[in-house]
Design a protein around this nucleic acid. Structure first.
Length: 532
RNA sequence: GGCCCCGUCGUCUAGCUGGCCUAGGACGCUGCCCUCUCAAGGCAGAAACGGGAGUUCAAAUCUCCUCGGGGCUACCA
């Protein structure tokens, strides 16, 4: 199960998700990806997946692979984007920025030729020193880089060039006036150009930076709505400026043609709107990090969260359908999702609620489907140790299939099967210390176990018969049923907490059940309080 | 410091064209019921409009101020 691909490839609206491949994909990013997908599906549009690996020092191949894997696992497949094999799908590729360098260089050259940029020969160290000074208040104001104060004189340029220094390329942004951007979730947002630094669009080593690559690609790939995290809100003005420049006089179209990249659709303009999603934060309202437990998607997978649960829960982090329902399947999400209904305040990621949602969905699963989902947690794929063979034997499958109905309604995560299964898949069971101390020390425990051994020896081996037999014991022994059930439970399963007793015994089988009761008997006797 | 964004139960949120709100739902929490343990399920309950001024017959809903939180302030994205 996952959200379907576009039935009308290439159609409007065209949205994109474009992570930088460093580290793992985390829930905030996935939420952004989800909203993009939902918007696309709701309107019958196209979801583009792009890898923003312009910074060679940070991007890694491993990270890229894991992000693609994570996105696929969680059910967010893309209509256009890179393919696992190294190829790509879609007519406006390539979709990895590291494969689009020629385009950026071409665009940068044309931008420079048009006078939209200027060279900056300052080194990172010099820039940093300048900022320090500005912030310390000894300078003339906040550290805003503007051509009016930053552009070198002709003599300086000649001198630096003679010295062999290389320059970065900065975009010339307006020195005054303001810009207003329409945001689907925040309304109109206005900035004064005087407060906005001229961004570096090309590093001194000739590579493109995010501002350039991102703007070029959004236009080259016909993105209509830019929906991303709020952390990118303040970067929007320069991006809009770049969009204007790139579209003016067909600059981008000519560059595309010059380097042999796919031409843009003639109907495409600049993105018509932005949508800045509220941040996803931890329960302490701080930025999500390892401290908050799981943040990477593969971690959720390992713990046994269902992709559908994640999609459902994440959709509600910043948005709610009109009718207030919380249990939403993909069809509901696609039908009801609305970007303009997204909230404005940061949302805290609540694992407890996610977990509750997951338990709810696990309970709804057909037993055989759940069984299949559980196997990876038993054969060593996801879990720590392997309790079953891979592939599973018929006998083991029978046990797991028998166990599933017993544990289905008490599980919230798939990995919890690792807690219940050992008692049923291993010959011997280790008696839990606390359970022994709590249950075997009660008066009558050994007697209950003894009587049960006798009973199980020749009772008909069905759940009903076992239950009927056990229910008669308390009367004979003159105690309550709990006084019998608990010792037997501990003896048979090793713990005072287990699936229902009669069903558990039945599943264990007559021989194993009796063997365990016999083995536990001396332990129970030893645990009895002294009666002398 | 500067610019920008945000502010309803612990958390996600409904409400925000002002009265139907004694502020609704969900997770979590507490109690009770059910019960062979643990769950599941059922029922009940505690729990919020950051603060202050206005406007108005009436404000969670409009205005202003204030406080608080966050983002950006990189030749990262």
């Amino acid at each position: 199960m996952s959200i379907p691909l576009s039935s009308t490839p290439g159609a409007d609206p065209r949205v994109r998700f474009c992570p930088a491949p460093s580290g793992w994909l985390h829930v905030g990013s996935v939420r952004a990806a989800l909203y993009n997908v939902l918007h696309a599906r709701h309107h019958g549009g196209t979801f583009v997946f792009r890898i923003e690996d312009t910074d060679a020092t940070r991007a890694t191949e491993d990270s890229m692979r894991s992000m693609m894997e994570a996105l696929h696992w969680i059910g967010l497949d893309w209509d256009e984007g890179p393919e696992p094999g190294g190829s790509s799908r879609g007519p406006y590729g390539p979709y990895r920025q590291s494969e689009r360098k020629a385009l950026y260089a071409e665009v940068a050259a044309r931008l420079e030729a048009s006078g939209a940029t200027y060279r900056d020969y300052r080194t990172s160290e010099e820039l940093e020193a300048w900022r320090e000074q500005q912030r310390a208040g000894t300078g003339e104001g906040p550290p805003v880089v503007k051509a009016s104060t930053f552009e070198h004189t002709t003599e300086e340029i000649e001198r630096f060039a003679a010295e062999g220094r290389t320059a970065s390329l900065r975009l010339r942004t307006p020195e005054s006036g303001s810009i207003t951007v329409t945001d689907l979730v925040r309304g109109d947002v206005t900035w004064d150009w005087s407060q906005i630094s001229d961004p570096v669009i090309q590093r001194s080593d000739g590579s493109a930076t995010y501002p350039l690559a991102n703007s070029v690609d959004d236009l080259a790939q016909g993105i209509t709505i830019i929906c991303r995290g709020e952390d990118l809100l303040s970067v929007t003005p320069r991006q809009v400026r770049l969009h204007e420049l790139l579209l003016a006089d067909g600059l981008l179209d000519e560059a595309l043609a010059a380097v042999g990249f796919p031409a843009r659709d003639p109907s495409w303009g600049a993105p018509s709107a932005f949508a800045h999603l509220p941040m996803v934060v931890g329960m302490d309202r701080k930025k999500l990090s390892k401290r908050h437990g799981s943040v990477s998607i593969q971690e959720f997978r390992r713990q046994g969260f269902l992709p559908a649960t994640l999609r459902n829960y994440l959709s509600l982090l910043g948005w709610a359908p009109k009718d207030g329902r919380e249990r939403l399947d993909d069809a509901d999400l696609i039908a009801e999702f609305d970007l303009s209904a997204v909230g404005r305040s940061a949302a805290a990621f609540d694992v407890d609620k996610l977990t509750a949602f997951n338990g709810e969905r696990i309970r709804e699963l057909p037993a055989d489907e759940l069984t299949e989902l559980l196997l990876p947690y038993l054969d060593g794929t996801e879990g720590e140790e392997a309790l079953i063979e891979q592939p599973i034997t018929d006998g083991q499958r029978a046990i797991v299939s028998g166990l599933v109905p017993l544990i289905q309604e008490r599980m919230q995560r798939l990995d919890e099967v690792e807690r219940y299964a050992p008692a049923f898949l291993q010959d011997e069971v280790e008696l839990d210390e606390d359970s022994v101390a709590k249950v075997f020390t009660k008066k009558g425990a050994p007697e209950a176990i003894e009587a049960t051994i006798e009973l199980l020896a020749d009772v008909e081996w069905t759940i009903e018969a076992i239950e009927a037999g056990l229910r008669e014991l308390p009367e004979e022994l003159g105690i309550g049923f709990g006084k019998v059930a608990q010792p037997v439970r501990v003896a048979a399963t090793g713990s005072s907490v287990s699936p229902p007793l009669f069903e558990s015994l039945e599943l264990l089988g007559r021989e194993t059940s009796i063997a365990r009761l016999k083995a536990a008997l001396p332990v129970a006797r030893a645990a009895q309080p002294d009666t002398d």
